[in-house]
Amino acid sequence: MKELKVLAVVVFFSLLVYWGVEPFAHGQMHKHVDSDKFAYSDLPEITKEGDAANGGNLVMGAGACLGCHSIESQGMPAPMDAGTAAASYGVNPPDLSNIGALYDEKFLAELIKNPAHALNVEHKFDPAAGKMHPMVAFYGAGGDIDQEVADMVAYFKSIAPKEISPKEAFDNACGRCHAMRYDKYTQLGDIPEFKYEKDALAYQIKVLEYQDHLKKYMGTLPPDLSMIIRARSAHYLETFVENPQTQLAGTSMPRVGLSKEGYEKVEAYLTEIGDPSKPQREAIGPWVLGFFLIFSILAFLWKKHQWRDLH
């Protein structure tokens, strides 16, 4: 039928334009980065069987983790508040309660032994040039260092909760550098409700001071991530979080070291805040399309009826 031929021509050229300006042009504009699927293949495997009990002793003792970090779930508070910590280290060191569930174990082991290497920020921190990473490497407690590190990782895994909410994942992995203003969240956490404006302003000053330390440490204030889920493609976000250097060479953002499951949690939170209509879209879409399908069928019957004795 002639009309279908005309339609085929129109559809062909429309799709050609679409292909040219969308998949093709974007493929040419952005270099392709292969995902490592959060395997961290450049980091050494853990060869030793970890002993959580011994790991616990090391974390509390010779490992000296608690000099900077808190483990709230085990009743170990942070040695100083976030602002003071940022003034000392540039950024507030994370709480260690759930890291065993969020991060890759190879990454955790390397982080303990050689932080700048695990975090992929050796371009920024070079001990030879006197630029030490603020996290001090663990040099061993006298025994086999690989065994000791494996023990500590086993300990963190043993105390990690079974279920971690998307927001908790974001809070630990991203939230000490990135704000999320659409969730009323800053680098200091959820913004509390204040009865008096002067208290609210005093809190704001604390946030600004923290951000100033962060700026000095990172070179620039890391962006608010409220809309990042729509500002970058899923593939970009995934490969960027996996290894920021591949997408943005020279960036001061460290490798986060999230496991695949950990990243999925973070992504879920970014989606919940930046693209909250997703579930609604998926729920309503089929009904609207169904409506117009029925509409078109009825309209076609009406057209047939109107044109019945024209030819």
Binding site: G285, F292, S296, A299, F300, H305
Partner: peptide, 22 residues
């Protein structure tokens, strides 16, 4: 008569349109 055809074409168009929207 002409309108009946227009409305049918519009119906098909809206299927595409709302597919894109959602």
């Amino acid at each position: 008569v002409f309108l009946s055809k227009d409305v049918f074409v519009m119906g098909v168009y809206f299927i595409l349109f709302f597919y894109l929207v959602f």
